[in-house]
Amino acid sequence: MTDQQPAIRLAGLTKEFGAVTAVDHVDLEIAAGEFFSMLGPSGSGKTTVLRLIAGFEQPTSGTIELFGEDVTKRAPFDRDVNTVFQDYALFPHMNVLDNVAYGLRVRGIGRKERNERAMRALSSVRLEQLAGRKPSQLSGGQRQRVALARATVVQPKVLLLDEPLGALDLKLREQMQVELKQIQRDLGITFIFVTHDQEEALTLSDRIAVFNDGRIEQLGTPTDLYERPESRFVADFVGTSNLFDEERSRSILGRDGHHSVRPEKMTVTRDGLVGDGVRNVPGTVVEAIYLGSGVRLVVDLDDGTRVTVLEQNVRDRAHDDERGDRVVVSWHDDDVVPLGAAVLPGISG
């Protein structure tokens, strides 16, 4: 950490809607220039945190600081943050150029200058040729880029993105991910990105906060979260995991506590593998699902534990496994991740 002010500092941030606590004492610092993601299932409080930062909601308690300045009590139009909305929220009665120029217009900037600046913002998302269209005449990806240009043209210190890629199809989403990352690098401003898509969060972010029940379950880099999940919830939500509870950990892994093993760290063979720290457990294939790039095997170990194994579709894959085949599932002890004490009841493995 440098002595530079964090872009955003949340302290004890709490938001209650009636009897429901949507955000529960969240403390968080987001560095300037960071691509930060808030990841979690719906209802986990991630969008509420974003709306609190934007100023659309007032917190029940706690404070929000923007570059060291307390903005908790400020209205949305007095905060140097801008939002890309989930439904884009483009003004339907204005054309693309007027939409992008809106933030400049309400700041009293003259027509000529605001149109020039809006055109520049539009060309940065490669839409200058559509400036005269109405939002209803654009495709989802184009609307998305207009929303981005509209939010960045007023040069916010922090850009908030509320599931901006949720409505796009897979191909376009992947393309927009690359574009978002480039835009963030070009502008050099802090992006706070809300998503429920763990793959998207892993791809884009410098750091990720995993939300669950209004709290931050784990905070870390994508590698941290994927390789070293600290709880069963994170292990299960970020990627897929084979989870072993205390009883199974003891019988299968020979360890105390809860553990997880990633499917791609497991191998399926006929006779098992030899080596230091390699554990071989026999089982029966229940399902073999062809994925193109690989094969997902669901195997019931002989004690009844069901595990998922992801096999790469490489040239020397020895054999095709089928339902009912007797196999040996192998993994290395180093790939077994111990999960912290904070184990949530009721989350099924």
Partner: peptide, 22 residues
């Protein structure tokens, strides 16, 4: 949609510009 009013406020529009332009 409420989000249009929020978008206007978010972009710096106070009450009167929001009413007038949106």
């Amino acid at each position: 949609p409420d989000s249009l009013l929020e978008a206007s406020a978010d972009l710096g529009g106070r009450t009167w510009p929001t009413v007038r332009f949106v």
